[in-house]
Design a protein around this nucleic acid. Structure first.
Lengths: 230, 230
DNA sequence: CACCTAATCAAGAGAATAATAGAATGTCTG
DNA sequence: CAGACATTCTATTATTCTCTTGATTAGGTG
């Protein structure tokens, strides 16, 4: 760790950088990153997080405590349940920053995403600019296919909530001649992809919003609903 | 890593989050964080980085290659030397973001900084607002005590370069009645602290700028010099 | 070409991390 | 207060990380 040269400030620097690296360590595990990404959509219990992230409860609990010790999440007890939430909006910003950096710098990530999409037939994707335009012209229906709690915690103005499990049952609600745009948590969430497939299979024109709810907030401002609680 | 429930998208998510966590892993080691922090001041050779970070050349080289594989730094060969530099300004922004988060969320870090400063006599610190004000009123001399290459790569307008090793020899340059404000790489760089002590010891009123060159750029705009090369 | 130097590579010891399973804790309900 | 349930704790194992040491590669120079 250190040479034997006489530098009296080494100890301070080492100690300081150990602390700075703690935040890095917190987001250095894929599971923890996924947990944070889920928490960015809204507060949740340990069990819900474990299930969505595909981990055991005990394992998720351990990761969550590492995140808590790093100051990235906070807890609150409600009866039997303990809800975790991001400690600060700047944590969600950090996640976005890391994602953007990974997308720009790691070819591997782009390849993985492309491979995944290629296994799911052709699919139109839409960006914010196009979405805004079409929303203004009233030419599309925007649906939020995340669980309804996440919709309530914050969603894009004009969207209607149709959690994916309910989509098949509610297909009759869509007029056949109007395009539907589905969105979910972001590029590493598969809900919108599945939604578009279901819609297309029943003859409805559908497209996927490539960005996430948080990108919307960062680039366009307001969400409707609670947002990320502090 | 995964339960045996039938979720065909687990593999995709796991693969995607492994990639996202790679950036986290890169900044999860104190030494690597320190190396990146140095590179944020300007490009450098492996040997220079190793020396400043208090590591062996072999060790620094290994860390740098991890950073390169994570896409955070790039290399260029000049004869015998290989210079490393940040791959993108957004890497420097990430470092700032992580630092700010650590300062806000980790009490430990603040304690370490306070302990360090308390071992160094009382010292006035100045923030950007005060600095601007005094620079405008021409009441102070602003000195950049980093190595001159870093000064050339980008510095605060109005600052003059006095690398710390030269400070004692150039004390005569300072009028006794005018305050001097010293700055360096940021709060975990000790150059400015040492500079203020030297100045005070010879009877010159001196203060330390608490923020870093990069904070200046982020909050006020321009630097003079090369900046971080892309 | 022999020699020097900057940087990387390769192998290994010791520490830290991640997942699992089973036990323990704390809180609500009847 | 017994039982149910959400969460955390403890112990264990396999894996990964970090640093050190000594050898090796690649480029430049006399």
């Amino acid at each position: 760790m250190k040479t034997d040269r006489p530098n009296p400030n080494r100890a301070f620097k080492d100690a300081a950088y150990v602390q700075l690296a703690r935040i890095g360590k917190a987001v250095a595990s894929p599971k923890r990153f996924e947990l944070l990404d889920l928490l960015a959509q809204g507060p949740r219990t340990v069990e819900a997080l474990a299930k969505e992230a595909g981990a055991t409860v005990a394992n998720a609990s351990q990761h969550l405590q590492i995140l808590r010790r790093a100051g990235l999440v906070e807890t609150e007890r409600h009866g039997l349940f303990i809800t975790y939430r991001l400690a600060d909006v700047s944590v969600a910003e950090l996640l976005r920053h890391l994602q953007r950096l990974a997308e720009n710098r790691l070819a591997e990530l782009e390849r993985i995403a492309r491979d995944f999409l290629s296994r799911h037939g052709p699919m139109e994707t839409v960006n914010f600019r196009e979405l805004r335009q079409r929303l203004r012209n009233d030419g599309v229906t925007l649906i939020d296919v995340r669980p309804s709690e996440e919709f309530l915690a914050g969603h894009i103005p004009g969207a209607i909530s149709i959690p994916l499990p309910q989509l098949r049952a509610r297909l009759v609600e869509f007029p056949q001649d109007r395009q539907v745009i589905a969105y979910c948590r972001g590029p590493y969430c598969v809900l919108a992809v599945e939604a578009v497939e279901i819609l297309q299979a029943s003859g409805i024109r559908a497209a996927r919003l490539a960005e996430s709810v948080h990108d919307w907030r960062a680039e366009r401002g307001t969400l409707v609903g609670g947002g990320v609680r502090r």
